[in-house]
Amino acid sequence: MLNELAAKINAAVAGANAQVLQAEDAKCESSILVEGTQIHAVCAFLKSSGSMNVLQAISGVDYVEHLEVVYLFAKFDPAAPAQLLLKVRTTDRVNGNFDTISDLFPAANFQERECYDMLGVRFNNHPDHRRILCPDDWQGYPLRKDYVTQKNYNGMEVFPEGKMNMADREFIVRQDMIKKAQEAAAGKVQ
């Protein structure tokens, strides 16, 4: 079913370059990866062709090598219900951006804001492009693997040293990820 849909997307949207990503585990769901620049056109096609009619969620993943935005679509049709995981990727951690789909699916408005808030992926032409959960003057994007929390906010200490065991605070795994991401970023600058 996914292969059919990917073929349809490729036929309808030039340059969409849709390909099926097979899930590693049989219990997990396979997904379709499309070109980031064509996400608006692909979603417009999904909506107009009736393949999918509901946007259930937008979420984001940081894989260190690239940032990924995942759109979860559904088709609410008693005769043939369906679900689709649509993914787009960007390797640009500073200015990574996609076109908004909030003009097609109004539900995308807050979801894209959350994605921007947590992962720092920007959405072009978004009607209200602000942070949604963190304060407006918050620094950094908390769900990134290389996120380092700011020391102070508004005169308040985020991690008061007198109150906690600082040595125990960071997971070793996370330290590795931070190091990896910093090396990757340094390599890109050179």
């Binding site: 959960l133 963190c134 996120y147 929390t149 985020v158 991690f159 008061p160 109150k163 906690m164 605070r169």
Partner: peptide, 8 residues
């Protein structure tokens, strides 16, 4: 321990 957003 890890809540970046919560006042301690």
């Amino acid at each position: 321990q890890h809540g970046y957003h919560v006042l301690k």
